[in-house]
Design a protein around this nucleic acid. Structure first.
Lengths: 202, 202
DNA sequence: ACCTGAACACCGTTCAAGT
DNA sequence: ACCTGAACACCGTTCAAGT
């Protein structure tokens, strides 16, 4: 009989082993040979399932993006107010990064996955949160993708600065800075600021 | 006679060699052995001047932060209007990152320098730009360090997303998003938003 | 089809030995 | 004081050989 990781799913076992390694020993400890050893196969075996180190890392990143997506989804669960919802979404993002520092480094490290489905879904959540606020006329009209990129840049930047030890309390800081950014996003009645009610997208 | 790099400044020569290597061959090619070879010494020689790879990388990062500082200084040269000045400052930041992608990755890579004088000076420029705008009552009062962190997170996040190929035109995008963030920072006469003229710091 | 073991060309780091 | 050369324990990747 074949061993557990020979159920035709050594690929899966290697990803699991890589995730464990990265969580335990950090970003730098992730070597193909160590992963293979943990999975109980020879150091050459992974090459039957991945083109090389980069592809295994991309798989770990994809897996982690799914975790990020889940954290964002959980954070907005049942929140209806557009501003609160958007803040919660950012909070879910920052929280995931702070709680999974090594994985976050893999996700945005030197070898980011090129076509990550989960990463796109995360960004899509930000875009939809903006559009939701625009539909309710809580946020100003405008390019929702662009405004979402601004939100992404803020949470991404804050998360990385916090992980680099350049921030005191990234979580608390985000709550305040997120609200501050939203002040710029809020609908403003003053016409001199360019608000035009009829340019709202559907 | 001793060779050029033995002028008691092999340390300097190693940093130069490392910078050249990182610019030419990128972030991943930076190995101690390659640096030593380029400087024309044995692979063990660097250990007389640096504790190890991390310390050499930190030196390269410090050098690069000085370049970032210069780019920011040049960008605000002669700009008096607080809003324009702040936008220019961010532009100088983003531009440096986009023009020196590999160095930027070293600066904020897995081994960020712990006590970087130049990095502190960069952040200080952001803080002072906020305070300058507050003094002229162009920006709302509030914790200038916190507002500067928001600005830093935005430019840092945008730069990294652009370097990861997740953005189309980081430069143009920053101009628009920088202005959008500043809308939140602008002084607002509406008292319901918490503006209090007398809480301005000196 | 899938995995192994040896091999190759690299690493970072250490250390006795040279000048 | 400063550098070298050999050595050690690691890498990623390739490939003939085994089952």
């Amino acid at each position: 009989m074949s061993k557990p990781y020979h159920h035709g799913d050594l690929r899966r076992a290697l990803i699991e082993a890589a995730l464990e390694l990265v969580v335990e020993s950090g970003y730098e400890a992730l070597s193909l040979r160590a992963v293979a050893q943990r999975a109980g196969v020879s150091h050459a075996a992974p090459y039957r399932h991945f083109e090389g180190k980069a592809e295994l890392w991309a798989a770990v990143a994809e897996e982690s993006f799914r975790g990020l997506l889940a954290s964002m989804r959980a954070a907005v669960e049942g929140v209806d107010d557009p501003t609160e919802r958007h803040i919660q979404l950012g909070q879910g993002y920052v929280d995931y990064g702070l709680e999974h520092p090594h994985q976050y480094r893999v996700m945005f490290g030197p070898t980011p996955p090129e076509d990550s489905e989960a990463a796109r879904a995360c960004f899509q959540m930000l875009v939809e949160s903006i559009q939701y606020g625009q539909k309710r006329r809580a946020f100003r009209p405008g390019d929702s993708m662009e405004m979402a990129l601004g939100a992404w840049a803020l949470v991404h930047g804050l998360t990385l600065l916090a992980l680099d030890g350049r921030l005191q309390d990234g979580r608390q800081l985000f709550r305040r800075l997120g609200r501050l950014q939203l002040e710029g996003y809020h609908a403003q009645e003053d016409p001199s600021r360019g608000y035009k009610g009829d340019t709202l997208p559907d």
